[in-house]
Nucleic acid binder design. Structure first.
Lengths: 219, 219
DNA sequence: GTCTATATCCCGATAGAC
DNA sequence: GTCTATCGGGATATAGAC
C-alpha cells in the first residue's frame, strides 16, 4: 500500500527507508552535491528535523546510500559475467556491468564515487565495496596463470578503463541515442584489447591490489 | 608586484583576471560545486557585487575558467608527446599528459569535466576543446594505416582509458605517495596494451569521432 | 518519532550612490 | 568599476513540546 499515493506521508512509517529512496531520487535529479535533507523532508511531507532521528547528519545519510549503492554495483558487475565461458569474456562482462551500472544508476554511482564522504568515518563503506575487486581479480587471475602480480596489473587496468567509460558516457561523450549500449559495448571491447595486449602491463609496485581509496584528496 | 601582499586588494586592478585565479584556488580547495562568487569576492577584498561587472553570472565565470583549463589540458596532452618516436609512444604520451593534468591540476580538470555548464550557452568552450581530439586521433591514424574508422575506435578507447586513470587517481585509488607518477605510468602502459590488442576494437557506429559532449545528462 | 520554532549561516542577484 | 544595502531564498542543526 505504500506506493498508492504520490504525496504519501511517512508519519510513523518507515521514514528511514523512505529517506534513502528519496535521496536516490533527488541525487538523480540534481546531483549529489545539491542534495539536501531539507528538500528530501519536504518531498516526504515531514519536518526538516525528522531525519535527524534516523541519521546523525547529512553525511551519514549519504554514506548509507553509498553502502546500498555498493551492493547494487557489485550485483551488476557479477551478474553480467554469470554466463561467460572464457576468463577474458568474464572480465569483459565485469567491465560491461560496471559501465551499465554507471549509466543506468547514475545516482548510485555518484553516491559511491562522486561524493566527498569522510570514508574513515564510515568503515561500513569500505567493507561494502570489498567484493568489487574480486569480480575483476578472479578472471584476471585465471588469465594470468595464477600470477598474482600480472593479474593485479590487468585487473586494475580493466577496472580503471571501465570507470573511464562510465564517466565518459555520463558526460555524453557517447552521444544520446543508444549511448548506454554503445558505452557498455565499447568497455567490453576495450577490455578484450587490454587482455590481448596485456604483456604491455608491468606489475604494480608493492603488491598494490585495486584497493578502495583510503585517503582521497581532501575536500 | 601583484604577488607581494596576501590580502591584495584589486580595487581598480585587473579584477577579471584576479577572479579567475581565485576561482581556481577555491575550486581546488573545496570543489567546483562549492565555489561561490561571494567567497571569491571576500578573498579578493571586493564587494560581492563587483564580479558582476566582469561576468554575467556565476556560470559565466566558471565557463571562462573552463576555457582557460582547456588550453592547459591541450598543452599538457601535446607537450608530453613531443619527443615520441613511434605513433604508439605518442599515443601513450598523450594519455600520460592527460592523466598528469588531471591529478596536478584537479581544479582545472573539474572545470572542464566536473561542472554542469550549459554548454550550448558557451560556444567558446566547444571551440576551446576541439584540438584535444587531434592529439589522440593523429597518432591513432598513423597506427591504423590511415584507416579513419580504426583510428577513431582506438583514439576513443585510449582517451577514455586515460580519463578513467585520471578519475581513479583523484579518488585515491593509486594510493597517496607517488600516486601521480603511478597513475601517469599506468595510463601509458594501458595505452600500449590497447594498441597491442587494438584488433579487438571494432569500428564505432556512424563515424563517431570523440566529439565533445554536446548534450550531457541534464542536471 | 515527529512537530514547531528558531538560531545561524551562506548564496545569487539587483538597485542605486559615488 | 566598485561600494553599500538589500531582497529573497535555502541550508544544517538544535531545543523543546507532544
Amino acid at each position: 500500500m505504500r506506493r498508492s499515493g504520490k504525496k504519501q506521508r511517512y508519519h510513523h512509517g518507515d521514514l528511514r527507508a523512505a529517506l534513502l529512496d528519496t535521496a536516490v531520487e533527488l541525487i538523480a535529479e540534481r546531483g549529489i552535491d545539491a542534495f539536501s535533507l531539507a528538500e528530501a523532508s519536504r518531498r516526504l511531507g515531514v519536518a526538516v528535523s525528522a531525519p535527524y532521528r534516523h541519521f546523525a547528519d547529512r553525511e551519514d545519510l549519504l554514506a548509507a546510500v553509498a553502502v546500498r549503492a555498493c551492493d547494487v554495483l557489485i550485483a551488476a558487475v557479477t551478474a553480467e559475467g554469470a554466463g561467460a565461458t572464457t576468463p577474458a569474456e568474464a572480465l569483459a562482462a565485469a567491465a560491461r556491468g560496471y559501465v551499465r551500472f554507471g549509466v543506468e544508476h547514475r545516482a548510485l554511482f555518484d553516491a559511491v564515487f562522486g561524493s566527498t564522504l569522510d570514508r574513515p568515518r564510515h568503515p561500513e563503506l569500505i567493507h561494502a565495496s570489498a567484493p568489487l575487486k574480486e569480480a575483476f581479480l578472479g578472471p584476471a587471475l585465471r588469465l594470468s596463470d595464477d600470477d598474482p602480480d600480472a593479474a593485479a596489473a590487468l585487473a586494475v587496468a580493466v577496472a580503471t578503463t571501465a570507470h573511464g567509460h562510465a564517466l565518459m558516457a555520463q558526460l555524453g561523450a557517447f552521444g544520446t541515442r543508444g549511448a548506454v549500449e554503445l558505452a557498455v559495448a565499447r568497455a567490453g571491447f576495450a577490455t578484450l584489447a587490454l587482455v590481448a595486449g596485456r604483456t604491455a602491463l608491468p606489475p604494480l609496485p608493492n603488491g598494490m591490489h585495486l584497493d578502495t581509496p583510503d585517503a582521497p584528496r581532501p575536500r
